[in-house]
């Protein structure tokens, strides 16, 4: 959590899209920005890129107000996936309240996925976050491509870990909101345990998620 100010009735949360280079983290945010109505979200801020690769991070802020008047701001970040930007990943990962790991479904990318997840574990430990406790969703992206890992294979690998897995094609725009919704549910549960969002602020999980994923009619 970035900030909680009981007096000012203000809470700032941080969610992070992590994953190997070119797995589609920025595309996820772009689609979220496109799909979710202007109401309750800010603009997507894309910090400098080189050759379409994120070198700093992207930021998409969301806002909602609990019945108690508690203003909640949720900042959604991506990290740069390239190995050499590890320090930036650490900086972005600091005090994250939830993480989406965007994996590249292509068979050829399995090793990169593994390496990046290993890096996530290491960096979470580095910034003092327990990977067993932090809300975490794994998204297998690029399902629109051929030569991708089968769903059975994904289930076989990830099933035993208990980590929720979603599939998506960020480029085609499906699975993106579902992934975000899953992360919001888990994040709400974690924050509610500590800050009693329901009891003290009258905010239940369903409306938390609904307010943040208000998909406009298109």
């Amino acid at each position: 959590m970035i900030e909680y100010d009981a007096e000012q009735k203000r809470m700032v949360l941080k969610l992070v899209y992590y994953g190997p280079a070119m797995s589609g983290k920025t595309t996820n945010l772009l689609k979220l920005h496109d799909l979710i109505t202007q109401e309750g979200r800010g603009d997507l801020m894309v910090l400098d890129t080189t050759d379409d690769r994120t070198i700093f991070f992207d930021l998409l802020p969301f806002f909602l107000v609990a019945p108690s008047g508690l203003k909640i701001k949720v900042k959604v970040y991506t990290v740069p996936g390239q190995v050499r930007h590890d320090a930036t990943r650490k900086a972005v990962l600091q005090r994250a309240d939830g993480v989406v790991f965007v994996a590249d479904s292509q068979l050829a990318e399995a090793a990169n996925n593994f390496e990046s997840f290993d890096n996530l574990e290491k960096n979470l430990a580095f910034v003092g976050i327990d990977i067993e406790k932090v809300p975490l969703v794994v998204q297998f992206n690029k399902r629109d491509l051929k030569n991708v890992a089968s769903e059975e294979e994904i289930a076989r690998v990830w099933g035993p870990t208990g980590v929720p897995v979603t599939t998506a094609s960020a480029l085609e725009g499906w699975g993106v909101v579902e992934t975000f919704t899953k992360l919001l549910e888990l994040t709400y549960a974690a924050i509610d345990r500590k800050y009693r969002l329901l009891e003290e602020h009258g905010l239940d999980g369903a409306s938390f998620v609904r307010q943040m994923t208000n998909v406009g009619e298109r």
Binding site: I2, E3, V12, L59, Q94, R95, V127
Partner: peptide, 13 residues
Amino acid sequence: SANRLQFLVGEER
């Protein structure tokens, strides 16, 4: 280096 990570991405301004 952990101490050096004082700057927090996302700090409110």
